[in-house]
Design a protein around this nucleic acid. Structure first.
Lengths: 147, 147
DNA sequence: TTAAGTGCAAAATCTTTGCAAATGT
DNA sequence: ACATTTGCAAAGATTTTGCACTTAA
């Protein structure tokens, strides 16, 4: 039943849906972020797309984020990392409840959706809209290498 | 039993403990951040301390963070916000487990320590070192103003 | 007295803006 | 053909670096 979410075809649909033109730079951004378990940092995207103007990349990332195609998460160094939103993410657009795991070794940011987070209490008066649990430590890969 | 943690006296002790000279700019940074429920953004600190050189502020915030006197948290816009670490925070330096609440209205970042967060599960292989629950929504003040 | 810290000038980065040329529909 | 999007140039903002002067211990 599930539609593939990482094919070139799907990317074109995505752009269509959001009334964005299917240009080479945009499709390239999407393909760079596809099939990755981790979010991609803006500097990484820049070097991966060295044929695309830096300014263009800024603008693409901005529209994509506004439209809810990708989401942004800041790693431990305050650098923006981007990942394609899952369908789950899009449905509950403003109620993202997922876990961002930032490895202190490789600095990768893993977006772990589909995780059921337990309820928690806030001091009275705070109206929660959305939350993400932000964890640091070693990712599976780096954890292995340590042994 | 508890020592005051927000007096000028305490600040001098803090600097002593970390072998830092008690200079006017440093004490001022600490006093600006004291007695606040919320973390202070770097831009705010800059305007609050307009008599101190911008570069000096950068350097002070960096040493303070290295020494574990303050901690840094990025708000929704990726701007660094700083708050004095609580005693709790210092003891468990690398195991901060607190909640950062970023109000979408006033943009304040509340550091809610002393919150017991429930356990949660991670996919196998991830070695968690520390985590913070990062929530967005309306803080008590803005929540009131909405009614 | 002297090592540490500050302030200023200047470099290096990062991000935004304006506009002409190119591109998708 | 026309509105969008891109690339380039340039402005603006942020962050870092180097070095002489000042200050706390």
């Amino acid at each position: 039943m599930k539609q593939p979410t990482n094919t070139p075809n799907h990317f074109e649909h995505l752009l269509d849906q959001h009334h964005l033109k299917k240009t080479a730079p945009r499709l390239k951004v999407l393909s760079m972020m596809a099939d990755k378990e981790t979010a991609t940092s803006q500097p990484d995207l820049e070097s991966l797309m060295n044929d695309v103007d830096r300014v263009t990349l800024y603008r693409i990332l901005n529209v994509f984020e506004e439209k809810g195609i990708i989401h942004k998460v800041f790693d431990l160094n305050g650098t923006a990392n981007y990942a394609i939103c899952t369908s789950n993410c899009q449905e509950h657009r403003h109620h993202d409840e997922h876990l961002h795991f930032n490895c202190t070794q490789c600095n990768n940011v893993y977006c772990l959706n589909d995780l059921n987070l337990p309820a928690f209490d806030l001091p009275p008066g705070f109206k929660v809209n959305g939350f993400t649990l932000y964890a640091t430590g070693l990712c599976p890969d780096c954890s292995k290498k340590q042994n």
